[in-house]
Simulated assay, not measured.
Amino acid sequence: MDPDTVEALRAASESDPHVDADGRVPHGSSDDPNLLDFSANTNPAVPTGAARVFSAAFASSRSYPADDYAGFRTAAAEFVDCDPQQVIPTAGGLEAIRLAIQTTVRAGESVLVPTPSFGEYAREVRLQGGEPSFVRHDALLDSDPAPHAMAVVCNPNNPTGESYDAAALRAFADRCRAADTTLLVDEAFLGFTDEPSLAGREGVVVARSLTKLFGLPGVRTGYAVASGAARDRLATARRAWSMSEPAAALGAHCYRDDDFVERTRERVDTERARMRERLATRFDVYPSDAPFLLFEVTDASVDDVLLTARERGIALRDARTFRGLDSHVRVAVRTPADDDRLLEALDV
């Protein structure tokens, strides 16, 4: 990274409350074993046999992994319905996002970035010397992509939870392609829905991971999907051995567990509806298609809600760290027993 970019990031941290002194973006997740974590949106369950597959791959870790990752690519491609050659393995979804931006955005170029949404998009754009052009997430598909090198869409959007209309998103993808603007679609939570992926569509780069749907954030397994020239740029720029052998084996195992995915979707749908109904008796709750709910606090301060929950053994996500939100909290959808504890702790 050149010195000018480093200085720009530091300047952004001084003027932007959504990043820290090193330009880092705050995220959810608690490592306190005494707290029930509702601040991170990862599945509380993992596929049957996941630990066995990961352990069995330990012996192969004594050697470098085969850099083509054929088994993982095939399983991931079947899951999102694309060609295995279009799958670019990465160490987590965020690396896929960085790879896409790094190979597309040049210094001085602008990128359409949704707000409120995942804070890493703007950070990654600035790392390349680009300039985020913030647009409300629910108005982004109405934007003109032509002046921008890239447009970013989070589907479903984090932290609000809504999915984009599939036909409108495809139409926007077509407009981006016509304008020679790369469309980056972060599908971190799309697996919780039955909506089709945009993987393999010309002019689109999709980012995915095992983190959310399969409850495995620490394994750091993800991938980008692209076609044509975008795919060639990603494949060229990808680091050699970008995924460990145990991570690749575990990824292939997870993506073939259709029953686990279906059970997860059913549980999340049922619990999300129940939680939203209860939370709405006290808070203004956003509609959601994702494994989390965002609500606005109107009867107390956010600090009071966070502190009360923590005193009752529960960690919530302070959503004020998202651009454009100033009185909001986000909570994950977990198991029925966990969700009951949350609802009791919030007095709803």
Results as ranks from 00 to 15, higher is better:
M1A: 09
D2N: 13
A8G: 15
A8Y: 07
R10A: 13
A11K: 12
A12L: 14
S15L: 11
P17A: 00
H18G: 07
A21I: 12
D22I: 08
D22H: 10
G23V: 04
G23H: 03
P26E: 03
H27C: 10
S30D: 06
D31V: 08
P33I: 11
L35R: 07
D37S: 05
F38G: 11
S39E: 01
A40P: 00
A40Q: 02
T42W: 01
N43E: 10
P44R: 05
T48K: 02
A50H: 09
A56F: 04
F58P: 02
F58G: 11
S60I: 08
S61A: 15
R62W: 15
A66I: 12
R73H: 05
R73I: 09
T74L: 15
A75R: 00
E78V: 03
E78N: 14
V80Q: 01
D83F: 06
Q86V: 00
Q86E: 13
Q86A: 13
A91Q: 06
G93Q: 03
G93S: 05
E95G: 01
R98F: 11
T104P: 04
V105Q: 02
A107C: 05
A107G: 12
V111P: 04
P114V: 13
P114Y: 09
P114N: 07
F118G: 00
G119W: 06
E120N: 10
E124A: 10
L127V: 05
R136D: 12
D138Q: 12
A151E: 04
P156W: 00
N157S: 09
T160L: 08
S163W: 05
A167S: 14
A168Y: 06
A168F: 09
A171N: 09
C176L: 05
C176Q: 02
R177L: 12
D180E: 09
D180H: 05
G191V: 04
G191S: 10
E195I: 02
P196T: 04
P196C: 06
S197Y: 09
L198H: 07
A199P: 08
A199S: 15
V205R: 03
V205E: 03
V205G: 01
L213W: 02
G218T: 10
R220A: 08
Y223T: 00
A224I: 01
A224G: 15
V225A: 03
D232Q: 13
T236V: 14
A237T: 06
R239Y: 01
W241V: 06
S244F: 06
A247I: 00
A249T: 01
L250M: 09
G251M: 01
R256A: 14
D257E: 12
F260K: 01
R265D: 08
E266T: 12
R267L: 15
T270H: 07
E271G: 03
R274V: 05
M275N: 08
R276Y: 11
E277N: 13
R278K: 13
R278L: 14
L279C: 10
T281Q: 15
R282D: 10
R282Q: 11
D284F: 03
V285E: 07
P287V: 10
P287W: 03
A290V: 10
A290R: 06
P291I: 04
F292Y: 14
V297S: 08
V302Y: 10
D303N: 13
D304Q: 15
L307E: 15
A309M: 12
A309K: 10
R310P: 02
L316S: 02
R317C: 07
D326I: 14
H328M: 11
R330I: 08
R330G: 14
R334G: 11
T335A: 03
D339L: 04
D339F: 09
D340K: 11
A345Y: 04
V348L: 02
